[in-house]
């Protein structure tokens, strides 16, 4: 199987180090990764690779633009239209144009997989699609942003103020220089949009999510919660039957399965047959994201390429 890899940031690098372990033909990857501009073969752009290279599967890991999904959206659209499988870690295009892209993939009889877009290494998409196949998914709730969870954990455990915990998160590389996207709940909200659209087939956008971030949370609030053996976590919730799609800080009993520490992510799926199923794991990081991408690539190799 020949793979084209577009995007050679931390996610792309994390993956190329691991990808040979999957027993995949690295030839195309090694050739094409140089065309991303990072490693430089002057004159060959990502677009050239996508439109002219000989490959079976595109791994798209360029930076996310949550509002337009570009340039990744154009790359993915083009690859699918040309009958190539696509694996992406990019939240933008999946949040913005999932239905269009999945229709296109179905038309061309190729796969579009996006495990890495929600909760990093946690195989939530495969759990929902295959592991819990046949169940009615009633509700999904979870901790979808590791940066916020880290800040809240440090405030609760060490009595740090919000500003102190945020600075610490920055120093450790858990928060961006501009943390807005994380702390205001936008990153988590995009993941809810992806889940709502892919799991229930809804057509939601970021504007449909009722978002409250953690940036005005006080230490006193955490202390008040602590007084009743509770803590506060930023929780995302989708309950389609009740029309609920929201990200908000919530008071949680300390022993609740979704109360995880540090940068961990957690997702609880409420189903009709299986009851509640909770998955916990690392939601970010280059090796963790690579894990999700590799599993998508191998899924396609095993179930779609070998058969054809």
């Amino acid at each position: 199987m020949k793979i084209a890899l577009i995007g050679f940031g931390s996610v792309g690098r994390g993956k190329s180090g691991i990808i040979s372990a999957g027993g995949i033909d690295m030839r195309a990857v090694l050739d094409r990764k140089k065309a991303t501009g990072m490693c430089g073969t002057p004159g060959i752009s990502a677009w050239d690779v996508i439109t002219t290279a000989d490959y079976d599967l595109l791994i798209e890991v360029t930076p996310t633009d949550a509002t337009t999904g570009e340039p990744a959206l154009t790359y993915i659209r083009e690859a699918l239209a040309a009958g190539r499988h696509v694996v992406t870690s990019n939240k933008g295009p999946i949040a913005v144009a999932f239905h269009e892209l999945s229709r296109l993939a179905a038309e061309k009889n190729v796969q579009l997989r996006y495990e890495a877009t929600v909760c990093g290494a946690v195989p939530i998409m495969k759990a929902l699609e295959h592991g819990l196949a046949g169940n009615e998914i009633i509700k999904i709730s979870g901790v979808f942003n590791g940066t916020c969870n880290y800040i809240l954990t440090r405030m609760a455990d060490e009595g740090l103020t919000y500003q102190q915990a945020l600075m610490e998160a920055r120093e450790l590389g858990y928060a961006e220089a501009d943390p807005t996207y994380d702390v205001q709940g936008i990153d988590a909200a995009i993941k809810l949009v992806i889940l709502a659209n892919t799991v229930w087939g809804l057509s939601t956008t970021l504007d449909d999510v009722d978002i409250t971030g953690i940036d005005s949370l006080t230490l006193a609030a955490l202390e008040l919660a602590d007084g009743q053996e509770c803590t506060i976590r930023l929780i995302g919730e989708i309950i389609p039957k009740k029309n609920i799609l929201r990200i908000s800080p919530r008071i949680m009993p300390k022993n609740h399965p979704l109360v995880v520490s540090g940068t961990l992510n957690a997702v609880m799926v409420d189903t009709d047959m299986a009851g509640e199923v909770t998955l916990i794991g690392k939601g970010a990081g280059s090796r963790e994201t690579a894990s999700a991408i590799i599993s998508d690539v191998l899924f396609i190799r095993d179930y779609h390429v070998k058969r054809s």
């Binding site: 609030a221 509770c230 609740h256």
Partner: peptide, 11 residues
């Protein structure tokens, strides 16, 4: 005001 509710069903 910011309101923080428990994670229970009182929607």
């Amino acid at each position: 005001l910011m309101i923080i509710e428990p994670l229970e069903d009182h929607q």
